[in-house]
């Protein structure tokens, strides 16, 4: 089972497609979750996911806006898609029929 941050990273990379790389994934996660994401967490999670065979990474071409430095490009592999789908289904199933307002106000029977 994926961790929450691992799922966010795979989802961001899948959404970005061919434009998935470190900074873009970081911005995507920050934009979606409205939370700060650290480079350290991002790169160590990328390594972990790559070791699990869920993503593949490679060094892209250097660009001007990055001061002539290369990007670490990311692509989600079939195993990653499978794991993310399983995570999403588990969360959806757990959430299905749960009334959060009722839980919050304590009126749930």
């Amino acid at each position: 089972m994926l961790g929450e941050f691992e799922y966010l990273l795979i989802a961001a990379a899948a959404r970005l497609g061919d434009e998935a790389y470190g900074a873009a994934i970081l911005l995507e996660i920050e934009r979606s979750t409205r939370r700060k994401c650290s480079i350290g967490a991002l790169y160590t999670t990328l390594d972990r996911l790559e070791a699990k065979g869920m993503i593949t990474t490679w060094m892209g071409n250097p660009t001007q806006e990055r001061g002539g430095r290369s990007k670490r490009m990311v692509r989600v592999k079939a195993k990653g898609v499978e794991a993310a789908t399983a995570f999403h289904e588990a969360v959806s199933m757990m959430s299905h029929g749960t009334s959060w307002e009722a839980v919050q106000t304590g009126t749930r029977k």
């Binding site: 790389y21 970081l26 480079i39 790169y43 990055r66 290369s70 990007k71």
Partner: peptide, 21 residues
């Protein structure tokens, strides 16, 4: 290389870049 490129692209301050590294 990738990390420093990300810093440049994100326009990160020196202080935040240091904390990130």
């Amino acid at each position: 290389e990738a990390v420093f490129g990300d810093f440049a692209e994100l326009g990160m301050t020196d202080q935040r870049a240091m904390r990130s590294v």
